[in-house]
């Protein structure tokens, strides 16, 4: 504009080009890595927002699942008398609930990524994926605390002579945990992307997770189901993960390895789909949210 001599634009000269929204898979891993400090700080922020100015503080990490499991034991075990594969009811429910609550947390929180951070996202750019990723990491931390508590109970029960038989499948625990986290992340970011346009989904999520829990063998064992129901329940990618987790630590129930492969495939597909939609939406969501 100022000078008439227009420089030949050498594309390599520019460090950044701001373009209209492009294809489906426009994720910048290197940039995400550059913002790893931010992910760490978001995790810290999540912690602070949750437990600062509470009396019990991080004790809630342990208390809330403990109470949940106790209620499960009373309602499903003692009142409804649902069988638990001959393992102590308390441990049975705790195994399922520990993993499930991680999944539920990831899904619930990432599902509102765009809507609850609209103000922040509207003011400054940073890779939006840092937000759901930090959620999943924070969830992982609280999961690990509960997991340690679970291990303690397993030891306690094993030492006191209950029919609890941890076995070699313990070794695939990390895979199970990763699957749960990624599955929650994948579904969460799909929902968060869609809620920028369709607010009804956020309502659906809250009670959808409740329903989903009953479609997962948490308060009942997979072994007690007829073949038809078992097949349907195993279509749920969370089912085999929880069933195998319980088998590994308690030595009861079944070992649906085929279904675990299926769950892994679903996880990868859901995650990729989620990232694709998320990246598509993140560029213009400010105009619709």
């Amino acid at each position: 504009m100022l000078s008439n001599q227009v420089n030949e634009i050498n594309t390599e000269d520019w460090t950044m080009v701001i373009k209209p929204k492009t294809g489906w898979f426009d994720i910048n891993i290197r940039e995400l890595w550059k913002y790893r400090d931010l992910i760490k700080l978001f995790v810290n922020r999540n912690y602070a927002s949750m437990y600062k100015q509470t009396i019990l503080g991080p004790l809630w990490f342990i208390l809330s699942p403990l109470i949940t499991v106790l209620i499960f034991t009373v309602v499903f075990g003692n009142i409804a008398k649902i069988p638990t594969d001959n393992v102590p009811q308390f441990l049975f429910y705790m195994a399922g609930n520990t993993l499930w609550s991680y999944f539920a947390y990831c899904l619930n929180t990432t599902a509102t990524t765009f809507t609850s951070n609209a103000v922040l996202f509207g003011k400054v750019y940073f890779p939006r994926l840092t937000m759901p990723i930090s959620t999943v990491i924070f969830g992982l931390i609280s999961f690990l605390i509960q997991f340690v508590m679970f291990i303690c109970f397993v030891f306690f029960y094993a030492l006191s002579g209950s029919a609890v038989k941890p076995n070699v499948f313990i070794l695939i625990t990390p895979l199970l945990i990763i699957l749960v986290g990624l599955l929650g992340l994948g579904f969460g970011i799909i929902i968060s992307s869609l809620t920028t346009k369709y607010r009804d989904l956020s309502i659906l999520v809250t009670f959808g997770i409740q329903l989903w829990m009953y479609a997962t063998p948490i308060v009942y064992p997979l072994t007690g189901l007829s073949e038809k129901y078992k097949f349907i329940i195993l279509l749920n990618p969370m089912s085999s993960i929880i069933e195998i987790f319980r088998y590994a630590y308690l030595g009861s129930g079944s070992l649906p390895i085929h279904s675990l492969i299926y769950s892994s495939v679903v996880t990868v597909v859901v995650l990729l789909l989620g990232i694709a939609i998320f990246c598509k939406v993140e560029k213009t969501f400010m105009d619709t949210v």
């Binding site: 701001i18 602070a48 213009t284």
Partner: peptide, 28 residues
Amino acid sequence: SRVTAPTSGNIYVKGRIASLLEVGTGFH
């Protein structure tokens, strides 16, 4: 500041852009 994407056209930038559309963004 890349909060939203353009409908058409390009912007070429040399160097890092930091934007201050509001102070205290993200303060908790």
